[in-house]
Design a binder for these strands. Structure first.
Length: 418
DNA sequence: TGACGTCAAGATCCG
DNA sequence: CGGATCTTGACGTCA
C-alpha cells in the first residue's frame, strides 16, 4: 500500500511550479519556466524519498501551456537528461507517480475543437511520464466529461475518442467517477466494456452516488477488477468534505480518525490511496505514520518539532498535553498524537499566545540578530500588541531573520506556513 | 452570463 | 520602495 498527495509540496523551498500569463509566454520565458519547474519536481521527488512517500501526483503545470499552440518548445528533447534523472529517482525509490488533467479536459465534448484540445492535452500528460522513462503503472487520470442532455450519446463519444487515442496514451489512461455527472457505476460500465482501469473516489461517490446504493467496499472491489497486472495495483482517491464549505470541497487536513475508519474498512494492502487535501504532504505523512506497523517514535518527535510552534500559538494547554504524550517512549499511539494535534490546530489562538510563541521563536535567533534587527522585531511586536499590525507582518519579519541566520530547525517548521 | 476550482501572476494599495 | 493584499487568468460545462 502506498499513500500519496497531489501536485504541491508544502513547506519546502524551490518545490513550486511557476507559470505566466498567455500574453507573456515567449519561447525564452517558457524555457526558463520549464527548466525551473523540472528542478522543482526533482526537489519534490527528493523530499518524497526522504519522507518515505511512495505515491505522488505530478502537477499539470510542470510545462506551462503544455498542450497549447503557443508552446512550441520541444522540452522533452531539451531537458531529456534532466527528466530521465528524475525518472531514475522515481524508479529507484519504488515511487509511483500520476498526472490528472483537470475538469477542462473533455474528451467527449460535442465541440470538435474541444475534443482536439483534450487529445492534445492527454498526449502532453502522457509525454511527461514517457519522458521520465516510467512504465504503464504510472497513470493519467481523466473524468468522462459532460452529458449534453444525452448521456448515452456522450458515453458513446467518449468510447469512440478513447479508441482513437495514440497507443501510449491509451495504455496510461484511467478513468474516475466525478462529483456531478458520471457516478462510479457508470464509470465502471465504461471501464469494464473498454478495458480502462477505474479509480474510485470516495467523496465524489458520496456526492454523486450510483442509483444502486451499494457500499464503498463493493465499488472498490468492483473497481479492482479493472486493474490488469501491467497497470499496477489498484489506485483510489480519498478525501474528506470540508465542514461548512460547499459540497465537494476538500478539507484543510485529513481527520485521522475518519481516515483510520476508512482504512480499516478497506482491510487490504494491495491498494494505493491518493489523498486530496489542502495541506498535501502534511496529511500524507500523518496517514503514513498512522498506518505504519511498529512506527519508531522518532517519526512522531520529528513531526512534533515541525508542528510545535503552530500548536503553541493556538493553545498552550494542547502544547503541554502533546509533550506529555510523547514522554512515553515505549507505549505510544500515532493516532492519539495526531488526534491531539488536530484539536490544537482547530483551536483559535489569542493575542497572548501569539506573542508568547513569537518570543519563543525569537529565542532561536536572538544571539545572532543585530541590534537593529532586535529593535525592528520588538517594534513589530509592540505594534502587534497595539493591534496596529497583523500577526502575518511580524511573522514574516521573523521568517526573514530565521532564513538569514539559517536556523534549520525553524526552516523545517510549519510555523511560518500561512 | 456567471459559477465552478485552482493558485500563481500581475496589479494595486499601503506605510 | 518593498511588502501586503486584492484581482485576474485559463480552461469547458451547465444552470
Amino acid at each position: 500500500m502506498k499513500i500519496g498527495y497531489a501536485c504541491k509540496l508544502i513547506g519546502v523551498p524551490n518545490s513550486d511550479m511557476k507559470s505566466c500569463l498567455l500574453k507573456n509566454a515567449s519561447s525564452e520565458k517558457l524555457t526558463e519556466l520549464i527548466k525551473y519547474n523540472i528542478y522543482s519536481l526533482s526537489n519534490i521527488i527528493d523530499y518524497n524519498i526522504e519522507n518515505n512517500i511512495k505515491l505522488f501526483r505530478i502537477s499539470s503545470d510542470l510545462i506551462p501551456f503544455g498542450s497549447s499552440e503557443v508552446n512550441k518548445i520541444k522540452w522533452w528533447e531539451i531537458f531529456r537528461e534532466e527528466l530521465l534523472l528524475v525518472g531514475e529517482k522515481i524508479k529507484d525509490s519504488n515511487m509511483r507517480v500520476s498526472l490528472h488533467p483537470g475538469q477542462y479536459t473533455v474528451l467527449n465534448s460535442n465541440n470538435k475543437e474541444v475534443v482536439q484540445r483534450a487529445i492534445a492535452d492527454l498526449i502532453y500528460h502522457t509525454r511527461i511520464l514517457d519522458s521520465l522513462g516510467l512504465n504503464q503503472e504510472h497513470k493519467v487520470i481523466l473524468h468522462i466529461g459532460g452529458a449534453y442532455d444525452n448521456k448515452t450519446l456522450a458515453v458513446k463519444r467518449f468510447a469512440e475518442e478513447f479508441k482513437l487515442l495514440p497507443k501510449n496514451v491509451k495504455k496510461r489512461l484511467v478513468i474516475e467517477n466525478d462529483d456531478k455527472i458520471y457516478n462510479i457505476e457508470e464509470v465502471l460500465d465504461i471501464g469494464i466494456k473498454h478495458n480502462i482501469p477505474v479509480i474510485f473516489d470516495n467523496l465524489h461517490n458520496l456526492i454523486n452516488p450510483s442509483e444502486q446504493k451499494l457500499s464503498e467496499s463493493y465499488w472498490i472491489d468492483k473497481s479492482k477488477t479493472t486493474w490488469k497486472k501491467e497497470d499496477g495495483i489498484q489506485k483510489i482517491h480519498y478525501s474528506q468534505q470540508a465542514e461548512a464549505k460547499k459540497v465537494g470541497s476538500h478539507s484543510d487536513f485529513i481527520s485521522i480518525n475518519k481516515f483510520m475508519n476508512f482504512y480499516k474498512m478497506l482491510d487490504k494492502d494491495d491498494i494505493d490511496i491518493m489523498l486530496e487535501v489542502k495541506d498535501k504532504n502534511l496529511s500524507c505523512v500523518k496517514c503514513i505514520n498512522c498506518t505504519t506497523t511498529s512506527l519508531n517514535i522518532n517519526e512522531l518527535e520529528k513531526e512534533w518539532s515541525r508542528y510545535k510552534y503552530t500548536i503553541l500559538e493556538r493553545s498552550h494547554t494542547k502544547y503541554l498535553e502533546i509533550r506529555e504524550l510523547l514522554k512515553n517512549k515505549s507505549d505510544f499511539s500515532a493516532v492519539d498524537f495526531y488526534t491531539l494535534l488536530e484539536d490544537g490546530l482547530e483551536t483559535e489562538g489569542d493575542s497572548g499566545s501569539y506573542v508568547n510563541t513569537l518570543l519563543h521563536v525569537w529565542r532561536h535567533i536572538k544571539n545572532f540578530a543585530s541590534d537593529k534587527e532586535k529593535d525592528n522585531f520588538f517594534k513589530y511586536l509592540e505594534n502587534f500588541k497595539l493591534q496596529r499590525t497583523g500577526i502575518k507582518t511580524v511573522k514574516n519579519y521573523l521568517k526573514k531573520l530565521v532564513g538569514k541566520y539559517e536556523q534549520e530547525y525553524l526552516l523545517n517548521s510549519y510555523y511560518f506556513l500561512n
